[in-house]
Simulated assay, not measured.
Amino acid sequence: MTTATSPAVSTYALEPAHSSVEFAIKHMLIATTKGRFQDFQVTAEVDEANFANSSATVRIAAASIDTRHADRDAHLRSADFLDVENHPELTFVTRRIEPKGGDWRVAGDLTVRGVTREVVLDGEVSGPVTDPWGGSRIGVSLTGKVNRKEFGMVWNAALDAGGFVLADDVKLAIEIELLKQA
Rank of each mutant, 00 (worst) to 15 (best):
A8Y: 13
T11D: 11
A13V: 15
A13L: 14
L14T: 05
E15D: 15
A17Y: 00
H18T: 11
S20G: 13
V21H: 10
E22L: 04
F23L: 09
I25T: 07
I25A: 11
K26R: 15
M28F: 07
M28H: 01
M28C: 04
M28N: 09
L29N: 14
I30Q: 03
R36L: 10
F37P: 08
F37E: 02
Q38H: 04
F40W: 04
F40Y: 12
V42E: 01
V42Y: 05
T43E: 15
A44G: 08
E48N: 12
E48Y: 06
A49N: 14
A49K: 14
A49S: 15
N50Q: 15
N50C: 03
N50G: 07
N50K: 13
F51G: 07
A52T: 13
A52Y: 05
N53C: 01
N53F: 05
S55K: 09
A56N: 09
T57Y: 00
R59Y: 00
R59P: 00
I60R: 04
A62E: 02
A62T: 09
A62K: 02
I65N: 08
D66L: 07
D66P: 07
T67G: 05
R68K: 14
R72M: 11
A74Q: 13
H75R: 02
H75F: 06
R77N: 13
S78G: 05
A79H: 08
A79F: 00
V84G: 11
V84C: 12
E85T: 14
E85W: 00
H87G: 05
P88D: 02
P88G: 04
E89P: 00
E89T: 14
T91Q: 02
T91M: 08
V93H: 05
V93F: 05
R95K: 14
R96Y: 09
R96D: 15
R96W: 09
I97M: 08
D103Q: 11
D103N: 13
D103S: 02
W104L: 07
R105W: 02
R105F: 06
V106C: 01
D109A: 13
L110P: 01
L110A: 09
T111H: 07
T111M: 12
V112K: 06
R113Q: 06
R113I: 12
V115N: 09
T116D: 11
R117D: 00
S126Y: 10
P128S: 08
T130Y: 00
T130M: 04
D131R: 10
D131Y: 06
D131L: 06
P132E: 08
W133H: 10
G135C: 00
S136W: 02
I138Y: 04
G139H: 11
V140E: 05
V140K: 03
L142C: 05
G144Y: 05
K145C: 00
N147I: 05
N147C: 04
N147Q: 08
E150A: 14
F151V: 13
F151Q: 02
F151L: 12
G152K: 01
M153A: 12
M153T: 01
